[in-house]
Simulated scan of single mutants.
Amino acid sequence: MSALSRLLVSVGLLSLFHAAYSAQEVSIIATQLHVKPDLPVDIKAETLVAVFLACLGLVLGSDQLKPIAWNVWAGNIEKEGGAANPFRLFEDRPNYLDIRAKRREFAEWAKNGAIGAS
């Protein structure tokens, strides 16, 4: 984090705490006077500016985003293999059966094996 971003986050958080403390004071005074507590515009504006400053400081202080490279990730997963592969269940499923080949095998077995055994 740079000095500017740290300064913005600090000022934003301090201002946010001040706005919260001011809102609490207004609420306490309004309940003592038995009036409906309504926040003044300056406290609402201070809250919005404080949140904006804190968010701006956090965004400016964050690292640069890295591009997403699906092929690099998938290549690393293929190299590692094993439990690290989230698609392992799809790749290891059994293939479809060839019904015609199974019928031919059964027919040959029935001709040769079953007749000779009886």
Rank of each mutant, 00 (worst) to 15 (best):
H18N: 13
Q64T: 12
D98H: 15
V49Y: 03
E80R: 13
L53Q: 00
E80S: 14
A50D: 01
Q24D: 07
G82C: 14
C55D: 03
A50S: 15
K66F: 07
S62F: 08
L8F: 06
S62W: 08
R6D: 12
A23S: 14
A110R: 08
V9R: 06
S27C: 09
N95K: 11
S27A: 10
W73H: 00
Q64V: 13
L53H: 01
D98L: 09
R93C: 06
W109T: 02
W70S: 01
S5I: 00
H34F: 15
S15E: 04
N71F: 05
R100K: 14
L97A: 12
R88H: 03
N76D: 07
L13Y: 12
R6M: 10
A114R: 05
L33G: 11
A83M: 07
H18R: 05
A74Q: 03
L14Q: 10
V41H: 11
Q24L: 09
N112K: 10
M1K: 01
I99Y: 07
A114V: 08
G61Q: 06
L60R: 00
Q32F: 15
Y96A: 15
V51L: 13
V49H: 08
V72T: 01
V51N: 05
F90L: 15
A74R: 08
Y21Q: 05
I99W: 04
E108F: 03
G61R: 01
A83G: 02
K111D: 06
P67C: 07
K111V: 14
L89K: 06
W109A: 07
A110Q: 02
R103C: 09
F17G: 09
I28A: 04
N71P: 02
S22K: 12
K44A: 15
E80I: 15
R88E: 11
F87Q: 04
P86C: 12
A45G: 05
K66I: 02
R100Q: 12
R6I: 10
S22Y: 12
P86G: 05
S2W: 01
G81A: 15
P86H: 07
A84M: 13
I29C: 08
N76T: 11
L56R: 02
W70A: 03
L65H: 09
E80G: 08
L4M: 02
E46K: 14
L89M: 10
L7F: 14
E108T: 04
S27I: 06
R103Q: 07
K111N: 06
K79G: 02
G81C: 15
R6L: 10
V49G: 02
T47A: 13
K102Q: 13
I28V: 09
N112G: 04
W73Y: 11
L39I: 11
S27H: 08
H18V: 07
E80N: 09
A54F: 11
A3E: 06
S10H: 09
L48G: 08
I28K: 04
L65G: 13
A45N: 11
F90Y: 14
E105C: 03
